[in-house]
Simulated assay, not measured.
Amino acid sequence: MRVVSLNVGRPRAVPHEGREVLTGIYKDPVSGRRAVRRLNIDGDGQADLRVHGGADKAVYLYPLEHYAYWAAELGVGLFPHGQFGENLTTEGLLEEAVCIGDVFRVGTTLLEVSQPRSPCYKLGIRMGDAGFPARFTASRRIGFYLRVLQEGELAAGNAIERVSRGEGELTVADVFALRHVASGDPERWRRALAVPALADSWRRHFEQRLAVSNRGG
């Protein structure tokens, strides 16, 4: 497991439906080591902090393995690293094999898996296709977010070492499907809520669904 590319970008204004919106989804590869802090990587930034960024979304990881799928699916050549807004383009870390709460050592940092990605309309802006977020969701090739347990530095080429397995061993793919694919299953919602590392926003979603279920809704 390794970091293939480290990608960062500051928010920029881009045209969208006759107006300008601010987005941090445009990331470019950088060389050398970068400091990783509790809320982001040096040189990186998020535009709308109501739904992006924060401790639970400090670093976004996307598997290199998915790039070939999208090249074939969209009939294009391979995209440059960072195309999907990820900070870390990686090899050897797929959603089906990574659990919420897994802790990885990368460079001198410790990073913990906090949640899958649920794409917003800004991914459609990046891809030049308003329908792409729905295709991204349907593919289940969504990547995942990491919180920073130990600040430090990392760089492209760093090995990724799994330090510990997440409590409950609920994979990123399982949690994503539970929200976006699977039918209502209160027992599985309870299982997700029992995972201490699950991001607060996802925890609230499952709590709300469970509350509705308990009321017979």
Score class of each variant (00 low, 15 high):
7 N>I: 10
11 P>C: 12
12 R>V: 14
13 A>T: 14
13 A>F: 15
19 R>T: 09
19 R>L: 07
19 R>N: 11
20 E>R: 13
22 L>D: 13
23 T>M: 01
28 D>V: 15
34 R>G: 03
35 A>V: 12
36 V>W: 07
36 V>F: 09
37 R>L: 13
40 N>Q: 15
42 D>M: 11
43 G>K: 10
44 D>R: 04
45 G>R: 05
45 G>N: 11
55 A>E: 13
55 A>N: 08
55 A>P: 06
56 D>H: 05
56 D>I: 09
60 Y>N: 02
62 Y>A: 00
70 W>E: 02
70 W>F: 00
72 A>G: 13
72 A>N: 09
74 L>K: 07
74 L>H: 12
74 L>P: 11
75 G>L: 08
80 P>H: 01
80 P>K: 02
84 F>M: 04
84 F>Q: 08
87 N>H: 03
91 E>I: 11
91 E>A: 15
94 L>M: 12
96 E>P: 10
102 D>F: 15
103 V>E: 14
104 F>Y: 15
105 R>D: 06
106 V>T: 07
107 G>R: 00
107 G>P: 01
108 T>R: 12
109 T>K: 06
117 R>M: 01
118 S>Q: 13
118 S>P: 14
120 C>H: 06
120 C>R: 01
121 Y>H: 11
123 L>A: 06
123 L>W: 07
125 I>L: 10
127 M>G: 00
